[in-house]
């Protein structure tokens, strides 16, 4: 009595061995529910979409070399704030996620997590050729090639790297799409979550994310 059996690690109430590093699927730490499917129809969608388009918050998260192009956007030369675009310091307060350039599998896991923490409506702008078809990393063992298999992309900005002007043009396109009610990638993601999950699990071999990263 009272003596631990040798070689047997005691378990936490959640079934996780003591001393092992916290696992993201630990149900005591994370919410486990799945999101409800979203519908397109909203009341007074026109007014809501106008407000959403005029005030975009770009999440401060650079995934690849393209994030070097995001810095100048805030400076006096390009000044994205004149379109109402500001930086979102956390996923919770952001509405636009920019995938800036190549996306390695390791980063993809973090990106999925960040994307699912953003509140709806949310949009993805993919920057550079790497997100479209691999770009110069077409034969790399660690970067994904077709981004829209893993995340719903609303606007692609091609180039290697695109200039900040091109990015601003992409933002203007996104704003027009939001105003017309066409930028509905977030609805697609929520409604086809199983398809996206299957693709994500195919490349992320050590899948340790919760059911949905609330």
């Amino acid at each position: 009595m009272g003596v631990e059996e040798k070689g047997k690690v005691p378990l936490l109430p959640s079934g996780v061995p003591v001393g092992s590093k916290p696992h993201a699927t630990d149900s005591t730490l994370f919410a486990q529910g799945r999101p409800k499917p979203l519908s397109l129809d909203e009341s007074v969608a026109f007014i809501k979409n106008w407000f959403r388009a005029q005030s975009l918050n770009v999440m401060a998260y650079g995934t690849g070399c393209g994030s070097i192009e995001l810095g100048p956007l805030g400076t006096s030369r390009f000044d994205m704030e004149r379109f109402g675009i500001t930086g979102g310091p956390t996923p919770r307060q952001s509405s636009v996620l920019i995938i800036s350039g190549y996306l390695s599998v390791k980063t993809l896991k973090r990106v999925i997590r960040s994307y699912e923490q953003m509140p709806n409506p949310r949009w993805v702008v993919a920057l550079g050729s790497c997100t479209i078809n691999g770009g110069m990393y077409w034969d790399s063992y660690s970067t994904i090639k077709i981004l829209d298999q893993y995340l719903p992309v609303d606007v692609y900005v091609n180039g290697c790297m695109p200039r900040p002007e091109a990015l601003i043009a992409g933002f203007k396109d996104l704003m027009d799409m939001i105003k017309r009610g066409e930028a509905n990638g977030y609805i697609e993601y929520q409604n086809n979550l199983d398809w996206y999950r299957a693709n994500q699990r195919k490349v992320i071999k050590d899948w340790n994310l919760p059911e949905y990263s609330w």
């Binding site: 599998v105 034969d139 994904i144 992320i204």
Partner: peptide
């Protein structure tokens, strides 16, 4: 490389292009 299952990728008998084609 989190959760890497293949042979280490910098070895020369690892075919990067074929792997990328197959995986991505």
């Amino acid at each position: 490389l989190e959760g890497w299952e293949d042979i280490p990728p910098m070895r020369r008998d690892f075919d990067t292009a074929a792997f990328a084609e197959e995986a991505f």
